[in-house]
Design a protein around this nucleic acid. Structure first.
Lengths: 194, 194
DNA sequence: TAATAAATCAAATGTTCGTTTGAATTTTTA
DNA sequence: TAAAAATTCAAACGAACATTTGATTTATTA
């Protein structure tokens, strides 16, 4: 037996929690709300999860680790810095369209992590930003990018795509391909026509 | 007597609330936290404010109204659509550097508004987005912008600058002028060097 | 200075929260 | 089918919350 029924239930609870946390915030979601969503009494959920905080940790660190491993792959690829950056932006967008609630929670609710988890999470994020900044810096030195402040470029890129996690639904009348292309056009070519 | 002492106290409380709401979230900030911050007993604060929700409303709608009136001014100005859009982005950035906590709260904590206020707030935001979308649409038809989906352009622009409200401090070693110029360069010229 | 108004807070109210306990029920195993 | 294990929930716990009450202190006014 590879995956126990208990684990499946547990994952279901965490998935529903992600949806609720995205919708109403971590603080705004009670364990009783979550219990109702999964069709259990609140007390019963504690057979599958240890605490509310553990759920949030699961979501946040799962996403954080995904981001880190994607960045590592790109760092090791042989492409121009411009291509690397574009590929990374695509991966970010893709993750938002496939794991919307989880990404949303990791991006917006991490402040509610317990103190120890919070420290660890901020450290992970800081490392990620440093490595990404290095990529931008290298690209600028290679003459591939405009001369703009690295931090500004870093945060503008990361921030510019954040709306996707809130906006994207399968029925928006736009494919993920179009979505990615439009965003990449604005960020790398600029909105203004030359 | 133009401004009563009571009103000044009230505004101070709301200002401190904005800082705390930004830092710890609306749900994560108790009235006791806020009382300690302003140097009063929790009960005493109720001489100056009606409720916690009223504070949040004050912050959110103050910012929302500022955005709307700024947009109205720009709509009525005689400039190219490109100039209008750039001016608006500058105003957004400027508001973040001058009213950081309030903008942060209006952007991140509006979900905690009471049901009626929430409806009103979402309506205001939706109107704002529609008018901004119309500006982008018009600029595209005038041939000033690249051919990208209007919603994508709209949200990418608005989202791209959101990090400023969290990042900007007077001692970041960058003037607001440089900050605005760098961001505008990326968004309108693109990060890639041609 | 005496009367009045404003400001303060100790104490309590009722509610909601995350979580635990312990017993009942259902499912699995031998 | 009997014993063991897993699952469920009713009930309750203590803590934290926003807010109210009522009395006390401080400032203002006549």
């Amino acid at each position: 037996m590879i995956k126990k029924k208990k684990d499946i239930r547990r994952e279901f609870i965490i998935g529903e929690a992600a949806k609720l946390f995205k919708q109403k915030g971590y603080g705004g979601t009670s364990m009783r709300d979550l219990a109702e969503q999964v069709g259990l009494d609140a007390a019963s959920m504690y057979h599958y999860i240890k605490s509310k905080d553990e759920i949030l940790q699961g979501i946040c660190f799962d996403i954080a680790n995904t981001y880190v491993s994607q960045l590592t792959e790109i760092e090791n690829a042989t492409q121009s810095y411009s291509q690397k950056l574009k590929a990374l932006v695509r991966l970010h967008i893709h993750l938002m369209t496939t794991k919307g609630p989880e990404v949303s929670v990791a991006n917006n609710e991490w402040k509610s992590l317990s103190p120890e988890a919070l420290t660890e999470f901020k450290s992970l994020r800081s490392q990620y930003e440093k490595r990404l900044a290095a990529l931008i810096e290298a690209g600028a030195e290679a003459g591939e990018f405009q001369q703009v402040n690295t931090s500004v470029a870093l945060f503008t890129l990361l921030s510019a795509i954040r709306w996707v996690e809130l906006w994207w639904k399968p029925d928006r009348g736009i494919t993920t391909e179009e979505l990615e292309n439009s965003i990449l056009t604005i960020l790398f070519q600029g909105l203004e026509k030359k």
